[in-house]
Design a binder for these strands. Structure first.
Lengths: 182, 182
DNA sequence: GTCTATAGTACGATAGAC
DNA sequence: GTCTATCGTACTATAGAC
């Protein structure tokens, strides 16, 4: 998989998908290395602090990627309510789309950092903060769109928190009800 | 802890708290046994199918307990919107309250099956179904309250799904932002 | 920088005495 | 029914050759 990418990028990409789908504790480093065709030595060469450092990188890359995705979607429509609705529908469509690549056992779909956030909230302050930062970043994109559309600042912040909360809740419910299939 | 309870109940109680707080994969059977003062032999005597069977029991007990709690709260106020709002505030207060008991490292607070649901949605069909059933049960309590209050059935079902979704989303956000401290 | 071999620990699960 | 000892496996992490 991803022969064009360097070793480091392959490891991070595989880790991102596995952590998001299976969870932080259910994913072994060996599994990540198998999926990314990298040797264990390379992992500890690029991430001397091991699993936690790798997860931190995965979370931060996801934060940036999703922020960019939301931002691009919101630019397409001027009205804030319409554009946000459109952006969420786009996310949902991506999750319902077919697999990107053939894999031995599991898709490459990226859902959210939702599961990682829950798992690490009480066990790793480093990872909890990274997840919090990601949620805040995404929320701010919605808030700014609402402000640009004429909403008062405080109101925009409240609404964007509700939007972010509902999206994360919807992911849990969809996965549990198997509306989304990973 | 819980010297008055039988061995089986002590194991289930400890497992319920640990699975909800740390997660299914992060919680070891040894940890559950330490916390419940039970020997490993007893665990496999009561739960011959091991960890998954124990988690199933924990989910089902949580389903019943939370259903009862919501139902009791909703009976206190007649107006559906007011009573549901009140019930949610009650849940939030419980999470912000002090610890029930002194523990070596972690509280006994029960949050939701939220984390277990995410972890097992793609790895154990048995546990996924149990979580789905729990969410549906709780949702139905809200829906019935709305119907009794005069809402049309379809509208009540839609609203209750949104309520359930927002509660689960709010738990994620609160844990990640450390508004709740477990 | 890349890779293999392996240390050291914890896991889930089982066997069998009592 | 209760308990301990232990098996086999998987984990994170490290050492050291190349």
């Amino acid at each position: 998989m991803d022969a064009e990418l360097g070793t480091r990028d392959r490891i991070v990409k595989a880790a991102t998908v596995l952590f998001q789908n299976k969870g932080y504790h259910a994913t072994g480093l060996n599994e990540i290395l198998r999926k990314s065709n990298a040797p264990k030595g390379s992992l500890y060469y690029y991430f001397p602090d091991g699993k936690e450092q790798l997860a931190l990188e995965a979370i931060n890359q996801t934060k940036i990627f999703i922020e960019k995705t939301i931002r691009e979607r919101l630019e397409l429509i001027q009205d804030p309510a319409e554009s946000i609705k459109n952006s969420i529908e786009e996310m949902a469509d991506n999750l319902n789309a077919g697999e990107d690549e053939k894999l031995s056992f599991r898709s490459n779909k990226k859902v959210s950092i939702n599961l990682i956030a829950m798992e690490t909230a009480t066990s790793s302050e480093t990872l909890r903060k990274a997840c919090d930062s990601a949620f805040n970043t995404w929320q701010n994109v919605y808030a700014q769109k609402l402000i640009d559309g004429g909403f008062e600042r405080k109101r925009a912040e409240n609404l964007s928190l509700i939007i972010q909360t509902m999206i994360e809740g919807a992911i849990i419910m969809s996965l549990t009800k198997k509306v989304i299939n990973l």
